[in-house]
Computed example of a mutant assay.
Amino acid sequence: MSLTLIAPEPPVDPARARPWSHPWVRFGARRLGRLLVSLGVLVTASFAMIHLVPGDPARAALGPTAPADLVAARRHALGLDDPFLVQYLHYLKGLFTGDLGTSLASQLPVSDVVAQRLPATLSLAVLAFLAAVVVAVPLGVVTGVLTRRGHGRRTELVFTTSSIVLATVPDFLIGVALVYVFAIRLGWLPVAGDDTAASYVLPVVSLAIGPAAILARIVRVEMVGVLEADFVRTARAKRLPARTIYLGHALPNAVTAALTLGGLLLSAMVAGTVLVENVFAWPGLGSTIVQSILVKDYPVVQAIVLLYGLGVLLTNLVVDVALALLDPRSTIRED
């Protein structure tokens, strides 16, 4: 009689048995939950806007002299005479099906109006953000190197003072000043529109100056702190080239806080396009929402507010993921 030996089964890894216990899974679940809650609040707020703003949208669209029966028919066509909950459910159904309603002013689908204006706003915000980063990061790094360990007091004073002044001046005032100097007085650049590449210069610069000043200050502060860290001292002790120390060791560790602020600045730039677009007659969502508010075209206002809010939420989500990839120990393990 022969005996058969059966090898014992290997112990089951608890992390594999429960995939939700993995830090990255918990991180993704937390961020997804926050995004869904924020989206719910944003959608509800954009819907309630039409009921909180004084005035009758149907009356505003038809004019003060329109007959009452015509106004009632327009309200019925827009669904404004339905109960609040029914209107909300219709609004949610339209969002899921891509039907954002019809513009009261142009009688065009709101989705078409947004699709026509969105590229101009995105191009302006992205170009301004890239310009701010390209200027702020090298400026902050150089200033941080020059002012480390208490050196360069005058340089630090000039940099700090000028950055505070530039950061506090509203971007639309900067735009007005740039128009007066470079478009009216000197005639170098066009005043308004987006027909040529030169027409992008003034709105991009006016939108990028303030965020660039803020970002440069953050990069400088982080750079000064990183240059006093132990790993930088070790790199100096190894006689590494200064370029390798500053760009290879110090800069990657100094951009973490700048990345967080950069995401917030990008969100602020998208919102800041509202005023800048009106200064330069830029055919984007910013000028469109102002015109829609003036004529009480609430479906267009709702759609643009929802789009701006969605852009901010997605930008914050991208920043959170980027920070988790750069420093997962401090981000994905948070309770």
Rank of each mutant, 00 (worst) to 15 (best):
V114A: 08
E277W: 00
A268T: 15
L42T: 08
L202T: 03
L52R: 09
R333G: 15
T273G: 02
R148E: 10
G193E: 04
V169M: 07
I184A: 14
L32W: 02
V145P: 05
T196L: 09
D327Q: 15
V274F: 01
V135L: 08
V137Q: 01
Q87D: 03
G40R: 07
F231K: 06
L186R: 15
A322S: 12
A48H: 06
P64T: 06
L146D: 07
L317M: 05
L294F: 11
G144S: 02
E9V: 10
V270W: 08
V12G: 09
A167Y: 04
F84V: 12
P19V: 09
A167L: 10
L100T: 06
L227S: 00
R34L: 13
Y91S: 00
L265K: 15
E156C: 09
G309N: 07
A258W: 02
T331Q: 15
V43F: 03
V53H: 05
R243V: 14
H249W: 11
D327G: 11
R153M: 09
L124E: 00
G263F: 03
D171E: 14
S106D: 09
G309Y: 05
V86Q: 10
V300C: 06
V158N: 13
G248C: 10
G150K: 01
G225N: 15
W282C: 00
R154I: 12
F172R: 02
V113R: 15
D81T: 06
P138S: 04
Y298Q: 13
R333T: 14
D56G: 06
L173S: 10
H76Q: 13
I209A: 00
K296V: 14
K93Y: 10
A60Q: 09
A213V: 00
A216I: 01
L70G: 09
A242Q: 12
V219M: 06
V37G: 04
Q87M: 02
I293P: 08
V191W: 06
T260M: 14
A29L: 15
G150P: 00
A15H: 10
Y298N: 09
L251P: 00
R220Q: 04
Q87N: 03
V290L: 08
D194I: 05
A242M: 11
A15S: 11
L85K: 06
V43Q: 03
V279S: 00
I174Y: 04
D335N: 12
V53D: 06
L100E: 11
T256K: 11
I174E: 02
V321R: 01
G28I: 10
P67V: 01
L52G: 07
W282Q: 01
D194E: 13
S38I: 04
M223C: 03
L307V: 14
R30H: 06
N278W: 02
A281D: 14
D335V: 15
P8Y: 08
S163F: 05
V204F: 01
A254P: 01
G33S: 04
A45W: 04
D335L: 12
F96V: 13
A198N: 10
R30W: 05
L227A: 02
P109N: 10
W188F: 12
A58R: 00
S38H: 06
V165C: 11
M269Q: 05
E334Y: 11
R148W: 05
L275A: 13
A120H: 10
V321D: 03
L35N: 00
L202Y: 02
D320H: 04
A48Q: 10
T44I: 11
F182G: 11
R185E: 11
Y200C: 09
V86H: 07
